[in-house]
Design a protein around this nucleic acid. Structure first.
Length: 156
DNA sequence: GCCAACGTTGGC
DNA sequence: GCCAACGTTGGC
């Protein structure tokens, strides 16, 4: 089992939205590096930190679990969607998505505190200029972030 | 709203 | 295949 971090803008889709829906597809990833991770590495049962970006309280806010592995993101063919991609061929879809299930909220672990924790220095998240919307998290990083919530060990 | 950093595009 | 221009991301 592997660990990941998914970024989302809470104005569009927040951890609260996910809790309400319980299960949601993770559409709209339009970056090749992130796509390749979804397609080649993200597996059912993997655990995911949900991270809120571009908002007042930037940081890790909860945990989800992958419940469906990569399949074509149909929004790439939806003319009405902001995620429409005219260059994607329906016979060979360019973009994929996975489904995740809500697990729980966490007390906010702010980006500021993550940047101040040397255990997280290798995360793309805290590195200058990183724009990866999906990134791997090592077990050590996962546990370090859980520790920072003050809620460790986690209640399953 | 600003703007630095980054990925993508397209002319050559 | 280079690289300048452009659009986007995302913290602040």
């Amino acid at each position: 089992m592997a660990y990941w971090l998914f970024k989302t803008e809470p104005d569009t889709f927040s951890i609260d939205t996910l809790k309400k829906q319980q299960v949601s597809c993770w559409e709209g990833v339009r970056n090749y590096q992130a796509r390749n991770m979804m397609r080649d590495q993200i597996r059912e049962g993997d655990e995911v930190f949900i991270y809120h970006s571009s908002c007042k309280d930037v940081g890790v806010v909860g945990i989800a679990e992958v419940v469906r592995e990569a399949y074509p993101d149909h929004f790439q063919f939806d003319l009405q969607s902001a995620y429409f991609d005219p260059k994607s061929d329906p016979a060979n879809p360019r973009w994929v998505m996975v489904d995740i299930a809500y697990r729980r909220h966490l007390r906010l672990v702010s980006l500021k505190k993550m940047k101040a924790n040397p255990a997280l220095d290798d995360m793309p998240l805290v590195q200058r200029g990183s724009r990866l919307s999906i990134m791997p998290v090592t077990e050590a990083q996962w546990e370090a972030i859980l520790m920072m919530t003050g809620q460790f060990p986690p209640v399953v």
